[in-house]
Design a protein around this nucleic acid. Sequence first.
DNA 1: GTCTATACTGCGATAGAC
DNA 2: GTCTATCGCAGTATAGAC
Lengths: 208, 208
Amino acid sequence: MRENILEAAVQLFAEYGYHAAPLRDIARLAGIQAASIYHHYPNKQSLLVEIMETHMKRLNSQLESILRKYDDPRERLRESIANHIRLHTTYKAEFFIIDTELRSLEEEPRARIIALRDEYDNLLQGLLYDGMERGIFRQSDTKVTTYAIIAMCTQVSSWFRSGGRLSVQQVIEIYYQMISQGLLLHPEGAHTQEEVARTLPPSSALGD
Amino acid sequence: MRENILEAAVQLFAEYGYHAAPLRDIARLAGIQAASIYHHYPNKQSLLVEIMETHMKRLNSQLESILRKYDDPRERLRESIANHIRLHTTYKAEFFIIDTELRSLEEEPRARIIALRDEYDNLLQGLLYDGMERGIFRQSDTKVTTYAIIAMCTQVSSWFRSGGRLSVQQVIEIYYQMISQGLLLHPEGAHTQEEVARTLPPSSALGD
DNA sequence: GTCTATACTGCGATAGAC
DNA sequence: GTCTATCGCAGTATAGAC
């Protein structure tokens, strides 16, 4: 029953948002009365916390295992993107909630979830930094680049439909191409490294 | 006063979410009583609708003017990204609301706002398609690529702080580099499309 | 155009029987 | 472990004076 309640909560939180999803509706979807939920969970907030915590921890632990398994930055990047997209399409609703309901968390649980998210950010940022150090990735602001990658891969959970036009694997391919190669086909003249360097603000201007 | 009320609503919708922001608090922030809001707006929903509609229309009209002004896909892309990021940092809270409160719209206004968003998507998708046709952009799925670009540029509104480490212009540079060139420094040998395909692990090896 | 007062509704949560 | 009944409160919105 605990599981039924949680699934119902996932569905309604994702569809209407935490505050707009009445406990009575969650109960009805789980096939019980609202009061019965309190036998399994202390309150509404705890449903949200459990959904977020479970999936953020899974996301982190899988990324950690990828970083242990691979050394080459390209493989690490590819596998990290694949992992992110696979989880965000498999647990579409759950990650959509993580992405949109942080504001609905009370103070202490929010701090915990944000810490998990920061951990994830940092692992990816480390991956990029290492790849730049080793001359495999272009020099760029690791923080902003990390945010950008996470943002684009995360949003997959808002438009992906399984059984739709594209398979998960195709989406992963498209994203990896986009992230690793960018859009321009022939970077031509103005795009050798020195010239790029001249085009960019000096890195000192980007420093903290 | 209309303007004060709207500003208060923007601030509280962005901070707590539409459903979690009581009209009484919006009124207090605007320096009046809750009931007085109803002299200016018919209900709470209309505040949300006005915020979203105003800014989505602005975003669209500026993109249209860029597409009229420039012909080269590279310039169009760069200016479109710059426009997107500039608006999303200038009207940070407003676009954050557009991004997170679509669910809170009632049916008819939601259809209108989604139509505006689709219009924007389509203009960008057309830009990419044209660039690919003309051999300037890499061939890729225009829909997914458009979503990816919009997602990364939109999220700027959730972390950007004016007066922070990076200026708007620097953020635009970083994003344009990322989108146009990607992360890999030396795609080595793998610059052409066929070679890229050969360099990557065979898609079968990536199966779910 | 803003106020005070209040109607009305629906929410999360609790009590206590079974 | 689930139910019925209900409490207490907070929410949007309205009425009507000034």
